[in-house]
């Protein structure tokens, strides 16, 4: 029984990260920009949040730390995603390369920053680790032995909001039109460039939030030289699997997280740990499942039609 609870707990934790980031990616792609730099935005959000958590004086009440951390992470993610917005929306640069550059740059920048900070404190030895043991506690909600965190609640809020904003507001519908046929949208007086900026910024903000959610749920310290170990890319896969729709993305994230959680908790299930297989299999499982699902579902891709294509007024 304890094993099952643990499995649910891990599933929810991973799902909270994946669905928030994937929904961020969805907003960007719905506006017509592929944000391959989600991973980078996550790292920057995680870095900013971790810095707030590590260096806020302990006299500050917990709820203020929580709010401050979340806001800083979102802001950092948004700022970092401006790199993509400026390059891809304004200057029509190649979106894939820009995203890749952001993913290479972010862990390097984050590690440089963290090492520079650790050098100047304590025993003058550079480490890529930031510790935020005290602040980490503020995010945890305990129900008996069941351990949850605020990010899981946030996930539900984000999913619900994303659904309402995308389908029930004028903004959402306009955003979607920019990703489907920007020239038609422009002829109806919609500012395509502005919409795409907003789309990218939302994705950056949500990725930043996902970044802090990820490193905060993982542990009370984080080595920044390993980035966010590919979760940004996983989120992209979840988004494609979820057909660019908030509810589907949420369900996809749950399914994927279940397999991911198995890798962490298989020890708790005797029938799994007794299987004569190498436990590394469980680490591989989510990626294999994801690939298989993509192989099955990609034939009739529901991707926004204009995604990845720079907006050109004169094109028909």
């Amino acid at each position: 029984m304890g094993g099952l609870l643990l499995l649910i707990q891990y599933t929810l934790i991973f799902a909270s990260v994946l669905s928030v980031v994937a929904i961020g990616g969805m907003f960007s792609e719905r506006s017509g920009v592929i944000n391959l730099g989600l991973e980078g935005c996550m790292v920057m959000g995680a870095l900013a949040g971790a810095l707030v958590m590590a260096f806020t004086p302990s006299t500050v009440p917990g709820w203020i730390v929580v709010i401050l951390t979340l806001l800083t992470s979102i802001l950092a993610g948004m700022l970092y995603s401006m790199l993509l917005a400026v390059a891809a929306v304004q200057f029509k640069a190649d979106q894939t390369i820009t995203g890749t550059a952001m993913n290479i740059l972010a862990p390097a920048l984050a590690t440089s920053v963290v090492k520079a900070i650790t050098l100047n404190t304590g025993d003058r030895k550079a480490t890529p680790y930031l510790y935020y043991v005290d602040a980490h506690e503020f995010f945890i909600i305990r129900i008996g032995t069941f351990e949850l965190n605020w990010f899981i609640l946030l996930m539900f809020v984000v999913v619900a909001l994303a659904f309402v904003i995308l389908y029930k507001t004028r903004f959402g519908l306009r955003l979607m039109s920019c990703g489907e046929h920007p020239q038609a949208a422009a002829s109806n007086g919609i500012n395509v460039i502005g919409m795409r900026y907003v789309g990218v910024l939302i994705s950056g903000g949500l990725a930043g939030l996902g970044g802090i959610a990820f490193i905060n749920s993982a542990n009370s310290s984080w080595p920044f030289d390993s980035g966010v170990v590919g979760f940004g890319f996983l989120a992209l896969a979840v988004m494609i699997f979820g057909k660019w729709k908030p509810i589907n993305i949420f369900l996809g994230a749950l399914l994927f997280s279940l397999f991911r959680a198995l890798g962490n908790t298989y020890n708790a299930f005797s029938f799994l740990s007794d299987l004569p297989v190498n436990p590394i299999i469980y680490n591989m499982l989510p990626y294999i499942v994801c690939l298989i699902i993509l192989a099955i579902t990609s034939r009739n891709s529901k991707a926004p039609k204009a995604e990845g294509i720079p907006y050109d007024k004169g094109m028909r």
Binding site: A87, F91, I97, A101, A108, T111, K115
Partner: peptide, 26 residues
């Protein structure tokens, strides 16, 4: 000199370079 800097700074440089390369076509 690791007393002042981390080797990742070289990676920052390459990261910026690829970012700029995306503008090359433009």
């Amino acid at each position: 000199d690791t007393a002042y800097y981390s080797p990742e700074i070289a990676k920052v440089v390459t990261g910026v370079i690829i970012y700029l390369c995306a503008f090359v076509l433009f």
